[in-house]
Design a protein around this nucleic acid. Structure first.
Lengths: 341, 341
DNA sequence: TTGAAAGCGCTAACAT
DNA sequence: ATGTTAGCGCTTTCAA
């Protein structure tokens, strides 16, 4: 049982004090190279592993970062997590993962857990029906840096990393216009989420930029699901002057639209164009392949983590301004919007 | 700054000792209800948050579980993580996530980190080129429970949770036989990974069970990609006696097969049947929809976590036998194998 | 039912 | 360049 080797054991072995061992191991400047070496040797000989729990208790730093996402099952978040963990690892931080499952209650519970675990900072993508944000203040009051990613909440002053939803939606809609589609509809996402609100604005902005009058009968509310895409498409196709293209608020909705169009024997992209948002993996494998907007998920994770670490490590410096990193979206043109014929 | 409220503060407030507060908060049997109540009250009044770092140091339990996966970006693992975290959360454990990126070195580094963080247990899906396993022994020697999931390593005696790849492949192949396809081919995955080796065995087993002689010209090596599916299909269609069905080692390979068949104007499923493996999301959205084998990813995560927690919490009991949980695969029949006509 | 006292393993201020 | 000392906040014997 090589279980309980401590710095005291190393100290005894070398006839020095635990303090010296501690300093040697953390490469303290005022320790002789000779001592450092012998400590290293003894440490690996005894198979010593630093007890970070004790270290954290004493130093007040855990090098732990709490991350809250709606669900790891959603591809988008898995991908962001990849970016976060990769960056964290390279900076010597570890991440604790918590899923809110889109429930505000779980989200709060996660924050409590993080508070209790004394994480050095928190990264969160809030649950979608999250209106109030008292639990965020509890974190900031305690002086723990917190950064929102992907989804932000308007009335809260924290750093954030998001993709430019307006611009992405603008590009997607403009693309449909350029491809020759005439009446372009939009199936939205929940408007209380800024992302979807911005995407709708981007859609409207593109129409306006091309002098196309917006038509409210061409905007249908959706809720981020295949079903709402199908429903939306059905509704849109039943109106007096139906559209010949849809910009969907995200890929699953777009998938529903395509599915409904197929059932109604409407040919894509010759008769009808579709663009989604998110660049979910399935998009390049369905028929027709789905045009969409890439959100740079991994970059988002990396940026969020780097910003957070900067906050953590500069706590004593004069507090810098609130930061908002906005990533550029990327339009990905595939078959579903290849042009009207 | 409500930062540093400790049990001592609560004790002072109520004129009792920290020990009593500690006991009251952890619902110790020998504390009067009256005291428990007043402690609860004072705690929430002062906005006390237990310092789990201190608690862990003293008690030797962190309620932290280390999880190592190849990459959170891979859908399959995201889904397993979802199951793990969900189950962990409900049992009061937190998970630390680490990605190996299929590198053995990273995997080792992750384990060292976990050792240092004094996690109560470890869940790992080993990197794919992981032959040696010295780093696993370092964990077991320290008496920390470790459980492998999805991927296992033969010569190591730990618990594991996997899906029955043999059976899934058997069912898929048998399904094609029952549907009336006559010459069934297999495009495999890397054979040094046990999962794919077992799937090939399952394919052979089903043929044998139905008294069909295996034909080595009908087995093509693939590498888990759309391209290898296309290449494989091309190769198979060019031989003297081409097959009329393919069981592909996983869904992307199957997708490649379908794509190649379409190009060659071969009709699915009337002339040719295809079944994949993994139940990737895109399967139900391509044309034709893809028959496949569901691996129960979330269940896998939940089972792995539950088994681990059982190990953690029963450490003092006589050590039970090595456990190997094998999840039942689920055949999902869709259009791509609807039968020959 | 509660209190007193010790200590988990480490770090850091102060001393030499 | 190293030693001394104290203590982070909690849990847990042992005692009352």
């Amino acid at each position: 049982m090589s279980q309980k080797v401590t710095i005291t054991d190393i100290a005894r072995e070398l006839n020095i004090t635990p303090a010296t061992v501690s300093r040697a191991l953390s490469n303290h400047p005022g320790i002789s190279d000779k001592t450092k070496q012998s400590v290293q040797q003894a440490a690996s000989k005894l198979n010593y592993k630093k007890n970070s729990v004790a270290s954290s208790l004493r130093s007040g730093k855990t090098r732990l970062i709490g991350v809250i996402i709606p669900s790891a099952e959603i591809n988008f978040f898995g991908s962001v997590i990849h970016g976060i963990e990769k960056a964290a690892s390279s900076k010597g931080y570890n991440i604790i993962l918590y899923q809110s499952n889109e429930s505000r209650e779980h989200e709060e519970k996660g924050m409590q857990t993080f508070l209790s675990a004394r994480v050095d900072g928190i990264l969160v993508s809030p649950a979608k029906n999250n209106t109030s944000c008292a639990h965020f203040y509890e974190i900031t009051e305690r002086n723990i840096p917190i950064i929102l990613f992907d989804r932000t909440i308007n009335d809260i002053a924290t750093d954030s990393v998001v993709v430019d939803d307006y611009k992405g939606a603008f590009m997607a809609t403009e693309h449909l216009i350029v491809q020759g589609y005439q009446r372009i509809a939009h199936i939205s996402g929940p408007q209380h989420l800024k992302n979807f609100y911005d995407r709708q604005r981007g859609y409207l902005g593109a129409l306006q930029a091309h002098k196309i009058k917006a038509d409210s009968s061409l905007i249908v509310n959706g809720n981020i699901s295949i079903e709402s895409g199908k429903d939306g498409a059905r509704k849109l196709l039943s109106i007096a002057a139906p559209p010949d293209a849809v910009f969907a608020a995200e890929d699953y909705t777009a998938l529903g639209v395509i599915s409904e169009l197929k059932e109604q024997k409407i040919r894509l992209p010759a008769e009808f164009g579709v663009v989604g948002f998110a660049n979910e993996l399935f998009g390049q494998h369905i028929t027709p392949t789905l045009s969409t907007v890439e959100q740079q998920t991994i970059r988002m994770g990396e940026s969020a983590l780097e910003l957070l670490v900067a906050r953590i490590e500069s706590k004593k410096l004069p507090v810098p301004e609130q930061q908002k990193i906005v990533l550029e979206p990327l339009l990905i043109c595939r078959e579903s919007s290849a042009g009207k014929r």
